[in-house]
């Protein structure tokens, strides 16, 4: 556990960049949206932007980067794969917990200031279905985990099996998803699927299902890294 903590600290030695990228990009996205909607005036009475997604995308890329760049470095310094994985998880989950808290806070401020005086929804969740405050917080946090663990898993496939592994994975995903889509169309299941999604609560879509997907991804990543070479 000690060594896992060391790995987490290792990834923070250049912390201004670790924190700077996600928040810098989110801030610039926010300011641009603010400027645009302030200048176009009443064209859209209650604008909602997708700008919040930027921080999630940056964190996904950061997780890919942890495997591609930090893994060979930490292994070179003599870390075990287990410590590296636990430490990276710790490092990332720690960030997700704090970042989700800040985002939640900003969404509260947004509501209190009447959408920054513009009725703008930037930090507020698109699904207003989540009313419970704990669930609202989790709705910010859990998608970080899903994307982050997805980033770890994909990058680890590349690290362990190289470009052939990536191509196999893409082919499998393409055939799998395409096949399911074909089957759904053939059997006329689309309305049923649409109905299923519509029946899900916001909490299930933003918290429950992502958490259920994130856990097996984390487990699979651990199995892959056990035999990965830097």
């Amino acid at each position: 556990m000690n060594r896992a903590l060391t790995v987490a600290r290792l990834q923070f030695v250049a912390w201004p960049l670790v924190v700077g990228w996600p928040w810098g990009i989110l801030a610039s996205s926010f300011l641009i949206n603010l400027a645009i909607f302030a200048s176009i005036g009443d064209a859209d009475p209650e604008p909602t932007t997708g700008g919040l997604a930027s921080i999630y995308i940056v964190m996904f890329i950061a997780c890919v980067n942890v495997i591609i760049q930090e893994f060979p470095f930490a292994m070179g310094l003599g870390m075990s794969r287990r410590s590296f994985y636990l430490g990276s998880l710790l490092h990332f989950v720690g960030q997700a917990i704090v970042y989700a808290g800040v985002l939640h806070l900003l969404s509260v401020v947004e509501k209190a200031t009447g959408g920054w005086g513009l009725d703008l929804t930037f930090f507020g969740l698109p699904f207003l279905l989540v009313e419970n405050p704990v669930l609202r917080y989790l709705a910010f946090a859990i998608p970080f985990l899903l994307l982050g663990f997805l980033g770890f898993a994909i990058a680890l496939v590349f690290k362990r099996w190289g470009i052939n592994g990536m191509l196999t994975l893409s082919t499998a995903a393409f055939v799998g998803i395409g096949g399911l889509a074909a089957l759904t169309t053939w059997r006329g299941w689309w309305p049923a699927i649409g109905g299923w999604f519509a029946d899900q609560s916001g909490g299930a879509l933003l918290v429950g299902w992502p958490a259920l997907l994130a856990l097996p991804l984390a487990a699979v990543s651990y199995l892959i890294i056990r035999r990965a070479t830097p």
Binding site: T6, V13, A14, Q69, F73, G76, L77, G78
Partner: peptide, 23 residues
């Protein structure tokens, strides 16, 4: 090792700090 790579964000003093944490 000659082929050791470093995360692109790191400066020389970061690498030394990282090594000091580990050893």
């Amino acid at each position: 090792k000659e082929s050791q790579t470093y995360p692109s964000a790191l400066r020389v003093h970061h690498v030394l700090r990282a090594a000091s944490l580990v050893h």
